[in-house]
Design a protein around this nucleic acid. Structure first.
Length: 376
RNA sequence: GGGGGCGCGCCGGAGUGGGAGAGCCGGGCCAGACUGUAAAUCUGGUGCUUCUUGCUGAAUAGGUUCGAAUCCUAUCGCCCCCA
């Protein structure tokens, strides 16, 4: 993997860059659609490419390990071959499931035991094992095994958890560096900064992570319920420490406004389930504001869903029709809405990149920030 | 034509068979939530009102009773059986 910053914004910490991988290039800042179980819910791979213009998608270690399982993944020749996506893939390590499935797991220094949410069976994951699994999945970007702490989180717990995540990172790196790339293309390991919303912990964690000197770095433990201002101030501190010449990935973020603010703070990569989940629930993001397509006021609105969308279906189908589909729980509704939201998220980061390159980012961002938060 | 059964809130269902419930379970409808996906999920509201308050209310109209969704009469509607 190679990262080149094409341009630093003069007034903010935003940058436009290029990540080169064996599965193709990624222009940053970038939004990465989440495809937990090997599919971005409701969206075909060719639609991700041609309409959404996604450049990289996610998969999830915990979910893919449980189903279809590593035997199938290995026989398939990795996730790219399995799901037919030939561009880059990043897999989350299961660190988020340590948070989201907290009732079903037990953490020890050695690793985490999960009781499967599918059949209740027990599975023990170590940092080393998590590296092996992601190698087999064949992710271009492999995430370190961490603990994503909840919000709020007591200082004492946040500190102990962060220190354990750092020890796990050492184990991840050692094991990763002693195992070969699985399918003939380069795999890259990303460490994750933790420390909850405590500035001193975040500073320590960012310095510790930076010292590992990996090709890219991630920030975790945010977008777990903290106020947006906490997210921004924490991101700002961490970005001030993580090296400028390496990609910075803010995990699990976020809303269009979050993306704009965090791009300005120096984030290059984002992922979030919001555009796809909210699409299925009828919430649409547009450059003019947020639409709850289920609302009565769209019942007889026969204008296009979004005439400026990247997504062909958003230009061709009407609001009234999409409202009907979502109301009727028709699968096509979820598909159209997911395409729409992902198309918008990718358009938004693409525009951010163009304005950074053109030197017009701050002005554009100010205007867009106001627009995307409106309720239509 | 005769006999029997049943009628409540936007719809369906259960339940009750003199001491009310604007109650219960579905659904619809109206809103809200959702951030490295246990989520095509979850939460709230859905007679009127001055909305943490009162009021009206059990097909319709009467009646019995201290008190009726419940018992009686008539009418209307639906279902079943017999002719």
């Amino acid at each position: 993997m190679k990262f080149t910053v094409k341009k630093f914004d003069e007034q903010t910490s935003a940058r436009a860059g290029l990540i080169e991988t064996d599965h193709g290039n990624i222009e940053t800042p970038i939004f990465m659609p989440v495809g937990t179980v090997g599919t971005v819910k409701g969206v075909h791979q060719h639609e991700l490419k041609e309409e959404v213009q996604a450049q990289i998608i996610l998969g999830n270690t915990y979910h893919l390990y449980l189903r279809p399982g590593m035997e199938t993944m290995e026989k398939a020749g990795g996730l790219h071959r399995f799901n037919g996506w030939d561009k880059p893939i990043l897999t989350d390590s299961g660190g988020y499931q340590v948070y989201s499935l907290s009732a079903r797991r037990k953490i020890t220094e050695e690793g985490v035991t999960f009781r499967s949410h599918i059949d209740g069976s027990k599975h023990f994951f170590t940092p080393e094992g998590i590296m092996d699994i992601q190698r087999i999945i064949g992710a271009d970007f492999i995430m370190a095994f961490d603990e994503c702490t909840p919000y709020p989180c007591e200082y004492k717990y946040a500190k102990a958890s962060m220190e354990m995540t750092h020890r796990w990172l050492k184990r991840c790196c050692d094991h990763f560096d002693n195992t070969p790339d699985r399918y003939g293309y380069k795999q890259t390991l990303l460490p994750i900064v933790q420390g909850s919303t405590y500035k001193d912990l975040r500073k320590i964690s960012a310095e510790t992570i930076a010292a590992f000197d990996r090709p890219a770095n991630a920030i975790g433990g945010l977008s777990v319920g903290e106020p947006a201002e906490e997210m921004y101030s924490t991101t700002e501190i961490v970005c001030g420490i993580l090296p400028k010449d390496k990609p910075r990935y803010l995990m699990g973020v976020g809303t269009p406004a979050n993306l704009l603010e965090c791009i300005a703070l120096g984030i290059d990569m984002f992922d979030c389930v919001l555009p796809t989940r909210n699409a299925r629930h009828g919430l649409l993001y547009t450059a003019e504001g947020i639409i709850n397509i289920k609302n009565l006021k769209w019942k007889n609105d026969f204008s296009p869903i979004d005439e400026n969308s990247n997504s062909r279906s958003s230009r061709n189908y009407t609001k009234a029709y999409l409202r009907h589909l979502i109301h009727s729980k028709e699968l096509l509704g979820a598909q159209i809405a997911s395409l729409h939201n992902l198309g918008f998220f990718l358009w938004l980061v693409g525009q951010a990149r163009e304005h950074i390159l053109a030197g017009t980012f701050p002005v554009w961002k100010k205007d867009m920030l106001e627009r995307v938060q409106r309720r239509l």
